[in-house]
Simulated assay, not measured.
Amino acid sequence: MVKLAAFDMDGTLLMPDHRLGDKTLTTLKRLRDRDITLTFATGRHALEMRHVIGELALEAFLITGNGTRIHSLEGELLHQQDLAPDVAQAVLHGNWQTDASMHIFNDRGWFTDKEMPLLLQAHAFSGFRYQIRDLQRVPLDEVTKICFCGEHEDLCRLQIQLQETLGERAHLCFSALYCLEVLPTGCNKGAALSVLSQHLGISMQDCMAFGDAMNDSEMLSSVGHGLIMGNAMPQLINVLPHLTVIGHCQTQAVSHFLAHWLDNPHLPYSPE
């Protein structure tokens, strides 16, 4: 029996224009009417997500920053992880061979060192934006995660450089083809969902989760019902071949799947 449903945002709940479709919102409210706990598990910042759920009038727990923060329905901080200062120092002051831009996140917001208006398109629906700052002057004990944005092949080369330097001191993951994240060791959406499920007294086997990128892999593999988007990164489908692949976020496939699951739970499902 499903008691909790966890949703990635970009490429999963959100359509390609980064909006939440009306059908999806209606279906999420149907889940709440069935007393199924909602959780948004995303790489986005808690400040942005609290605004989003307020605008949508939804009650949902928040796993943000790819598992670095967990917040209750009331906004209470339930769990947090930050990068170790020595890791933050190594990344911020490293001489990386890359064209990717660097971004720092902490509880006060999102920081980068130059204007990149194209990146703001993904946040148009919330109005959340970066703050321009000299990144090397950010206190090392105030870094939750670091993100690099750029071309995928460039980021793959950067990932090798970071792995060689950081070893087991950090967790590296792609939250999108163009986004490589440096997270605290052991920090991911799956670990955070496990913490939340224990807090709520819910078994992970009674959780359902949806995702599309490699930062969703631990979450999808650890729940009783993991669903992969049809527009997912090929690497995700390859590492979790036993999970069901549904339709594309453009067609609000999460809503399509859940409507079938709610109304015809004993019939086989096929994507649109």
Results as ranks from 00 to 15, higher is better:
106 N>I: 06
106 N>G: 05
107 D>Y: 05
108 R>I: 01
108 R>Q: 11
108 R>V: 04
109 G>W: 13
109 G>V: 09
110 W>K: 02
111 F>C: 01
111 F>K: 05
112 T>H: 02
113 D>H: 10
114 K>P: 00
114 K>V: 01
114 K>D: 00
118 L>I: 10
119 L>P: 02
119 L>D: 12
120 L>S: 08
120 L>E: 15
120 L>Q: 13
122 A>H: 15
122 A>E: 15
123 H>G: 00
124 A>H: 14
124 A>F: 12
126 S>N: 12
128 F>E: 15
128 F>Q: 15
128 F>R: 12
129 R>G: 13
130 Y>H: 08
130 Y>Q: 04
130 Y>T: 04
131 Q>V: 09
131 Q>P: 02
131 Q>I: 10
131 Q>Y: 03
132 I>M: 12
132 I>Q: 13
132 I>N: 06
132 I>K: 13
132 I>F: 05
133 R>L: 08
133 R>C: 07
133 R>P: 00
134 D>W: 01
135 L>T: 10
135 L>F: 07
136 Q>H: 14
138 V>W: 10
138 V>T: 15
139 P>G: 03
139 P>K: 03
141 D>T: 13
141 D>I: 03
144 T>F: 06
144 T>I: 08
144 T>P: 07
144 T>N: 14
144 T>Q: 15
145 K>C: 06
147 C>L: 15
147 C>Y: 01
149 C>H: 08
149 C>F: 07
149 C>Q: 13
149 C>I: 13
150 G>N: 07
152 H>L: 08
152 H>K: 05
152 H>F: 08
153 E>I: 03
154 D>I: 04
155 L>Y: 15
156 C>H: 12
156 C>M: 14
156 C>K: 15
157 R>T: 06
157 R>A: 12
158 L>G: 14
160 I>C: 01
160 I>E: 09
160 I>Q: 04
161 Q>P: 11
161 Q>R: 14
161 Q>N: 11
162 L>R: 04
162 L>Q: 03
164 E>T: 12
164 E>M: 06
165 T>M: 04
166 L>M: 13
167 G>Q: 07
167 G>Y: 06
168 E>Y: 10
168 E>A: 12
169 R>Y: 01
169 R>A: 11
169 R>P: 02
170 A>I: 04
170 A>C: 08
171 H>W: 03
171 H>S: 02
171 H>G: 00
172 L>E: 06
172 L>V: 01
172 L>F: 04
172 L>C: 03
174 F>S: 01
174 F>C: 01
175 S>P: 08
177 L>F: 01
177 L>G: 01
177 L>V: 00
177 L>S: 02
177 L>Q: 01
178 Y>S: 09
180 L>S: 09
181 E>F: 06
182 V>P: 10
182 V>K: 10
182 V>A: 09
183 L>A: 02
184 P>K: 14
184 P>C: 07
185 T>A: 15
185 T>S: 14
185 T>N: 10
187 C>I: 09
188 N>D: 14
188 N>S: 08
189 K>G: 01
189 K>A: 02
189 K>R: 09
191 A>G: 02
192 A>T: 05
192 A>I: 03
192 A>C: 07
192 A>Q: 04
194 S>T: 06
194 S>H: 03
195 V>E: 07
195 V>N: 02
195 V>T: 11
197 S>G: 04
